[in-house]
């Protein structure tokens, strides 16, 4: 669906890629990591430390801390606030990276049911 782009008559710059547990995810320059993941159909990327519950975006504005990720080894960043940069390595897993990039990479257990790689909803 092209609607949001048509609505604002966007002429987006070329996409770049970030890697999420090794898999490529496309990003429009300026998008947050959380938005890129959500837009790619990835609905969760962390599990909670007590009940191993899957978590992704909830508040979307930096208040709930559900969407924590590790980026290039830097742990506990809010995906919804962190603008993606070309080549970012995002790791998820049990605990968004207290254990750094080694945190259960490619686990994918928490990913959404429609985890196909749609390109930013377009």
């Amino acid at each position: 669906m092209n609607q949001p782009y048509d609505l604002v008559r966007a002429r987006p710059e070329p996409e770049f890629e970030i890697s999420v547990d090794g898999a490529p995810v496309p990003v429009i320059p300026g998008q947050t990591i959380g938005a890129a993941l959500h837009g790619a159909g990835i609905r969760s990327w962390r599990t909670t430390r007590i009940g191993a519950r899957p978590r992704g975006l909830f508040c979307g504005i930096g208040v709930c801390f559900d969407c924590l990720v590790t980026v290039n080894g830097s742990p506990s960043l809010r995906a919804c606030l962190t603008e993606a940069r070309p080549g970012d390595r995002v790791s998820t897993g049990a605990r968004a990276g207290q254990d750094g990039p080694g945190g259960r990479p490619g686990d994918g257990g928490g990913h959404g049911t429609d985890g196909g790689k749609t390109v930013n909803g377009r």
Partner: peptide, 9 residues
């Protein structure tokens, strides 16, 4: 919106 979208509207 971020600059990267070059939104005209």
């Amino acid at each position: 919106l971020p600059q990267g979208f070059n939104a005209q509207a």
